[in-house]
Design a protein around this nucleic acid. Structure first.
Ligand SMILES: [Zn+2]
Ligand SMILES: [Zn+2]
Ligand SMILES: [Zn+2]
Ligand SMILES: [Zn+2]
Lengths: 127, 127
DNA sequence: CTAAAGGGTAGAGTATGCTCTAAGGTCAAC
DNA sequence: GTTGACCTTAGAGCATACTCTACCCTTTAG
């Protein structure tokens, strides 16, 4: 498919798609005789994955490392497994910390709700 | 305390500390007669929280919103509770997605390990 | 043939979040 | 009173990740 279709199907700006390609995030981008890019179907999925990981806070560099390892044999299997384990550990650590943040936000939400209720019912503010 | 101490105790560059203050992330920063900043003890904790949230992928703007609400009564209690609920929902969504990523990375790690083992034992590569 | 739509590259511009430099004021020690 | 450590502001510079402009080529439709 041409870049316009990929842009339309992923919602990602074509300049950004070219930028991702230059950054090594999109490989297997063929060129037609006229030098136009010709993306495979799975590029849609690939771009979606990049965007999801990006939204979760991964840098393009990190995303590239993971995608490279997923496309195994680009590097050694054993080395790839180590990289995956490292990334997984980082993600799991992040999950743990986010759970703490979630709990904190939940407590604060409760506190503010209680305070708002007290304000309504007793005309005073506790928080 | 003066900026050098806060810098030393938090490990955050003094330029960054001033930048955070300008961005509204650090309030209650007094000035001494000589115009030097005078931070309260809890600024250490505050900066640590900013750094943690930042490392988890929050933008400074988001961090500011949360900290403002935590310092309640700066905005309405009810409104603060709503903001907390929204932030918590976003964090929980992020946790769910990160769990999916963690599972994916775990599967890939296993696949690559299996492949590496097969390569060692049978002289072939499956992945 | 020509216009319009779509593609290409190179490079400029923008937003965020630092990080550092320049120029100068303050203060304690000697 | 001079040195040196510490502070101030303003603004430059940098990395990341886009986003857009300029300018030119290709394809398709009339
Ligand atoms: Zn941690
Ligand atoms: Zn209140
Ligand atoms: Zn989601
Ligand atoms: Zn292999």
């Amino acid at each position: 498919m041409q870049i316009a279709e990929l842009e339309q199907r992923t919602g990602v700006n074509r300049h950004t798609l070219r930028y991702y390609e230059k950054a090594g995030l999109l490989q297997e981008v063929e060129r037609r005789g006229n030098n136009y890019r010709d993306y495979p179907e799975k590029a849609v999925e690939r771009v979606a994955m990049v965007r999801q990981l990006k939204a979760l806070g991964f840098s393009l560099r990190e995303i590239r490392e993971v995608l490279d390892a997923l496309r195994s044999d680009s590097i050694d299997c054993e080395q790839g497994a180590v990289l995956m384990a490292e990334k997984k550990a980082a993600v799991d650590d992040k999950i743990r910390e986010l759970k703490q943040v979630s709990a904190l936000l939940g407590r604060e939400q409760q506190r503010l709700e209680d305070s708002a209720a007290a304000l309504r019912e007793e005309g005073r503010c506790k928080g």
